[in-house]
Simulated assay, not measured.
Amino acid sequence: MHLLVLGGTGFVGRTVVDQARARDHHVTVLNRGHRPAPPGVTALSGDRTAPGGLAALDGRTFDAVIDTWSAAPSAVRDAARVLRGRAGHYTYVSSRSVYADGGPVPLTEDAPVVDASPDAGADTDYAAAKRGAEIAAGQSFDGPVLFARAGLILGPHEDIGRLPWWLLRLAAGGPTLAPGPHDLPLQYIDARDLATFLLEAAAAGRTGAYNVVSPPGHTTMGELLELGNEITGGRAELRWTPPETILAAGIAPWTELPIWLAPGFDHAFMHGGDVRRAVAAGLTVRPVRDTVADTWAWLQSLDGPPPQRPDRPRVGLDPAKEAALLG
């Protein structure tokens, strides 16, 4: 395929480019040029939020487009309009956050979604921005459109910092707060498996919404941290702590303890999605050991700290707060 990736230098976009190049697709990327483009691509420069920011696409046609945008839905609307009649398929990388609170768990692709507008600006919250962008792509593009509703995304090049924080914390060693229960099920997607699904679905012309994440219970909090400890050198002393104790200490799930959510609705929402539609369409996921080991190898290859998206807060637990809870 001749593939256009809108973005292409961050976590998911870069992984899509790498997987596409490995399959000998010709890849064009369009972005603001804040980070160097991956090797082997045609790099175009443009700020899609500015007037004329998509001008570099003039006269070009593509077999498929993959759009990873996470801000104002109007940017997706404008890109889809520009690409009408010039691309064979449009994939928007959305999020399972588009589902409305209170829906039945496990959430299928037919569950209620949040209210949103395709014309919303940059002040839109994340869930409404992702849903608004879905509407924008569906209304403005004149060909088949797929919405990849990803969940928690992990793997090499992660720029949110969730798995990198845990691996670096485990590598530091010593008594380590391990949020329980030990058998708490986790559901996530390795970015490489997400990219593979996107490319194969685009080639097959698939349309509609797909929950693109591993089956529920793909791993557990215990397996993830114990593998991480093994792979980073076995220096951490995991202190498994009940959720009630952690919450009573004022430690925030998800942000201070990345990936972890206490049992309850939030956990069921994030880690209990129905993925039968994606699996039937060919989604496959690699073992958790591969994701952990490859992420650690990538971290060790860096000259400095791992990348951090400027539009997302840093995650992780203050060492003093951890020590206070562990006594």
Rank of each mutant, 00 (worst) to 15 (best):
M1P: 10
V5W: 11
G8L: 09
T15S: 07
D18K: 13
Q19W: 00
A22C: 09
R23E: 15
D24R: 07
R32G: 05
H34P: 03
R35D: 10
P36S: 08
L44F: 13
G46A: 08
G46D: 06
D47L: 05
T49F: 04
L54N: 09
L54D: 12
A56L: 08
R60T: 12
T61M: 01
A64D: 15
A71G: 03
P73R: 14
V76C: 06
D78P: 00
D78N: 11
D78I: 08
D78S: 09
A79S: 14
R84F: 00
H89M: 02
H89D: 13
T91G: 01
V93H: 01
R96D: 15
Y99S: 10
D101K: 11
G103E: 12
G103F: 09
P106S: 10
V114R: 02
D115Y: 01
D119N: 05
A120I: 11
D123F: 02
A129W: 13
A129K: 03
A133C: 10
A137S: 00
Q139G: 00
D142S: 08
P144S: 09
V145K: 08
A148N: 14
A150N: 14
G155Q: 05
H157G: 02
W166P: 05
L167E: 08
G173I: 00
G174I: 12
T176L: 07
P179R: 10
G180W: 05
G180S: 11
L184H: 07
P185E: 04
D190L: 04
R192I: 03
D193V: 03
G205Y: 01
G205M: 00
G205K: 07
A209E: 13
Y210T: 08
Y210H: 10
S214M: 02
T219D: 10
M221N: 03
M221D: 02
M221P: 04
E223R: 15
L224A: 07
N229W: 13
I231C: 03
T232W: 11
T232L: 09
T232H: 07
T241F: 12
P242D: 09
G250P: 08
G250W: 13
A252P: 00
A252F: 02
P253Y: 09
W254N: 09
T255Q: 12
P258A: 07
W260Y: 14
W260L: 11
A262K: 03
F265A: 10
M270L: 06
H271T: 09
G273C: 07
G273T: 12
G273L: 03
G273H: 00
D274A: 05
R276E: 14
R277A: 15
V279E: 15
T284A: 15
V285K: 12
V288R: 01
T291M: 13
Q300V: 03
S301Q: 04
R314M: 07
V315F: 10
D318F: 00
D318W: 13
K321S: 10
A324L: 02
L326I: 04
G327E: 07
G327M: 01
